[in-house]
Design a protein around this nucleic acid. Structure first.
Lengths: 150, 150
DNA sequence: CTGATTATTGCAAGGCGTTGCAGTAGCAAT
DNA sequence: ATTGCTACTGCAACGCCTTGCAATAATCAG
């Protein structure tokens, strides 16, 4: 099976990372990885499947989701949930971040480390709780929608 | 159709609130309301349907979800999403709160106003974003699981 | 009480995601 | 190149939730 050396970081060498863990490098996984390597920012599960199907019409959803699980264990993607609860995958290595969703206009913004840092610290101090920032979803109203509704 | 006067607050008089809005008071809605009136804290959609079926085996999921939408507009329930993205309904008027989920043990805690206040203020100051606390889900590791994993 | 109006219901189908299982095919060793 | 171990795949079925539509029934005016 083809190596992944020519893929952009952090994907080069994924094949060998799989093998070193006793995992197998299959054509289906290659498809998913290639699609992810050409994606930045966010993808929903459904979008990813659609893009995989463009390369390989035989793509099966369960295989894609299972591959995503593995990639998440390897730290190459992280998943969260959008405002409607649907899965959303962040392709690394963007900086880890959470999301802000506007319930009115549907807009979405990232919560970066600078903004999240103090919050994460607050939870750690209060309960010893370790926040997984990439899994944080905050829904509300953005400034303009909030202003509009008054 | 029977009135709702004898239900505990905030449910007494729901029937009339429906009618005043031009909405209709049906047996199906009565079932949902009665079940909610006997529930406190959280319910997932599936749990609620199951409890409704205990009273009325004919209960239809879509009707329940549509009723919940109406109740949410009336401010009687709020919905959020659990760690897995599934819907979870908060029965009001508990204090508005968000949720903390431990990805390891599955535990769940509430984020009360005292803890959330500073965070909400931070978002408002930074972007003018108005956080909807009941729709906030923070996933991570609780103190004991975090300790255990080291 | 009767009829007209129209909000709701029930149903069927669909979308997203998960799971169990039997057959397939990577991979390492020979 | 062959073999054996077992990690994957494909499939089918399921769970949760949403949506469109025709039939039903709650409400209101007379």
């Amino acid at each position: 099976m083809s190596p992944t050396d020519q893929l952009p970081e952090p994907w080069s060498g994924v094949r060998d990372r799989f093998r070193r863990r006793g995992l197998r490098w299959t054509p289906q996984r290659r498809t998913v990885v290639e699609v992810l390597a050409g994606t930045d920012g966010h993808v929903t599960g459904a979008e990813l499947i659609e893009r995989c199907r463009a390369r390989d019409p035989q793509t099966i959803p369960s295989t894609v989701y299972r591959t995503l699980d593995v990639l998440e264990e390897l730290g190459l993607v992280r998943h969260g949930h959008g405002a409607d609860g649907r899965e959303e995958f962040h392709v690394s290595p963007g900086t880890e971040h959470g999301h802000l969703y506007c319930a009115d206009c549907g807009g979405s913004w990232e919560i970066g480390a600078s903004q999240a840092g103090p919050i994460i610290d607050a939870f750690r101090r209060a309960d010893g709780f370790e926040v997984d920032l990439s899994h944080v979803t905050v829904v509300g109203r953005c400034a303009s929608c909030a202003a509009a509704s008054r």
